[in-house]
């Protein structure tokens, strides 16, 4: 019998998902634009999905649950992306900018 060196370990998947989450968190805080922040949120959601699938494959007794949940996360991410992008386009039409710090009409 042969065991694979890498792709049979759950920790590798979890650490890749953790790296995706950390990259997304960094981008969410440091990037100023709306669309860049949306890209970072997508990275975070992908990390969560990868985590669900890793636990599903290696640990769960009922292996339909993680797949179902990952599908739901994908659907919610699609809905969120549609809303965010339309808000970005509407904000750009009104303010001529999609930098989040520039949209401060209520402050002045």
């Amino acid at each position: 019998m042969v065991h694979p060196m890498l792709f049979g370990n759950m920790e590798i998947y979890l650490i890749v998902a953790l790296c995706l989450f950390a990259l997304g968190l960094y981008g969410l805080i440091s990037r100023p634009g709306f669309i860049s922040m949306l890209i970072s949120v997508e990275l975070i959601l992908n990390g969560a999905g990868l985590n669900f699938m890793a636990f599903n494959t290696f640990l769960a007794p009922d292996k339909t649950v993680g797949a179902t949940f990952t599908l739901f996360v994908m659907g919610l991410a699609a809905a969120e992306a549609a809303i965010c992008l339309s808000i970005a386009v509407a904000v750009y039409r009104r303010f001529r900018s999609i930098i989040a710090d520039d949209i401060s009409g209520l402050k002045d």
């Binding site: 990037r31 100023p32 634009g33 669309i35 860049s36 949306l38 890209i39 997508e42 991410a77 699609a78 992306a81 549609a82 992008l85 970005a88 386009v89 904000v91 750009y92 039409r93 900018s97 999609i98 930098i99």
Partner: peptide, 18 residues
């Protein structure tokens, strides 16, 4: 779906350099 709609939004709302 998501990435293609992002490309459309990038083209519609032209951002300045960050």
């Amino acid at each position: 779906a998501v990435s293609i709609s992002m490309v459309f939004a990038v083209m519609l709302a032209r951002p300045p350099e960050d």
